[in-house]
């Protein structure tokens, strides 16, 4: 048996698939620009919760699938995910002690870095014209972090602790 028996492959994979589904869901037009990067939030959660199971390579693989799923250049989200996973792995011992607000600050930083990378690497007219709406997902992602954190923790620990 693995040392950390609070990790379940099924729950991990299902949460990733659900996050991918949320990422591409057709929200009504006024809400669409607010849609955060759910996949990255879920990856951050699993890296913090089970760093000995979910690491840089799994984050990279998920990023590659995200690129195909959302039609980005191959490697864009893979790069972002692996960098963020690295930050989380380096800091996970401290981050797990932090209250949720301080975690939120870290999440904000991660999302900002990810959006900056998209901004620099994608040389498209689209982003240049999107103006401030391009940065909205960073804010909403931070606001949704407590929801992601508590619901995924509930899912991860459900019927695992006796």
């Amino acid at each position: 048996m693995p040392k950390n028996n609070t990790f379940g492959y099924g729950r991990y994979l299902l949460s990733i698939i659900f996050a991918m589904s949320l990422n591409i869901a057709a929200w009504p037009q006024p809400m669409a620009p607010f849609n955060p990067n759910w996949i990255l939030l879920v990856v951050i959660y699993w890296v913090l919760a089970a760093p000995e199971r979910v690491g840089i390579f799994s984050a990279w693989t998920i990023g590659l699938l995200t690129d195909v799923l959302t039609g980005r250049m191959l490697g864009l989200n893979a790069l972002i995910n692996s960098l963020v996973a690295f930050l989380c792995l380096r800091l996970h011992k401290r981050l797990r002690q932090y209250p949720i607000l301080q975690q939120g600050l870290f999440i904000f930083f991660c999302l900002l870095v990810s959006q900056f990378l998209i901004f620099w690497i994608t040389d498209s007219q689209t982003i240049a014209r999107a103006s401030y709406t391009f940065w909205l997902p960073v804010l909403t992602g931070t606001l949704f972090w407590p929801l992601v954190f508590f619901s995924l923790r509930a899912i991860r620990l459900y019927r695992r602790i006796r």
Binding site: Y9, F57, W60, T61
Partner: peptide, 29 residues
């Protein structure tokens, strides 16, 4: 092997892993 890392205490350090992942991503881009 594909999706989940083996226990990372036994593998290469996370710095090496990051380097491999970043190089692979940039190569793809």
């Amino acid at each position: 092997v594909i999706v989940i890392n083996p226990l990372f205490a036994t593998g290469p350090s996370i710095n090496t892993r990051l380097l491999v992942a970043v190089v692979a991503s940039i190569a793809l881009l």
